[in-house]
Amino acid sequence: MAAIVTAEDIAMSYGNTPILKGVSFELEAGESLSLIGSNGAGKSTLIRCLLRLEPIIAGRISLFGREIQNLKPSELRSTRCRVGVVFQRHNLVPRLSALSNVVHGALGRNTQSFGSMISGISLWSHITAGRVHRERAMECLDRVNLADLAHRRADSLSGGQSQRVAIARALMQDPDLIIADEPAASLDPIAGEEVMGLFSELCREAGVSLIFSTHNISHAVDFADRMMAMKSGRISLDGRTGSVDLQALKAEYA
């Protein structure tokens, strides 16, 4: 299978502080990968670099075979729209309904031609969105079991519900890859477990590749095929989740 994410020897720093020091890995289509490591190890930065939310200073990153460093804005958007993104917090627009937030997932798909750019304006809210998009958004909410809260405002939802809305928005994109930065970190243990379970189940069902970072070693092992551990900007471990020594990992990274 072809690699859909390729990172070759990437380096990144904030000012004079190096954050990533030569990170290389590949992710194949359909694979799920968990990233672990202590705070400041570079997990979030790596994720932000993969999406070109931060610039790298050396190395190469390719998504779906396109090197993202040199893409024009429109090419970057058409690459990004194949990637669903879920952050730890503040994913959703607080004052809009859950449904509107899910409808936003279609925005990326709507920038490729001038006609669709115009129709993109209708996607600012579920009220103006066309029937096709609204129904699709309802389906996505249904897949995360939130159809009954579709019209609730996002800021009235619990942390776990918000993350499920964010997942529904990612599904709305019909992505080939989902990247999640500590999606369970701000949730209580039960909600965290639910969200992670939902992630891995939906990705497996739809054949979507998944990269997520976490502090929870059992999540990293239970919900991914493969895991990578990071330590001060470098990958210190990369292997199948079945073959790692859980006790040794917990001693080192927990």
Binding site: L51, L53, L76, R77, S78, T79, R80, C81, R82, V83, G84, V85, F87, H90, N91, L92, V93, P94, H104, G105, L107, G108, R109, T111, A166, R169, A170, Q173, P175
Partner: peptide, 10 residues
């Protein structure tokens, strides 16, 4: 939240 949308291609 705007960044989350632009990260997904909006």
């Amino acid at each position: 939240s705007a960044e989350a949308l632009s990260a997904s291609g909006a």
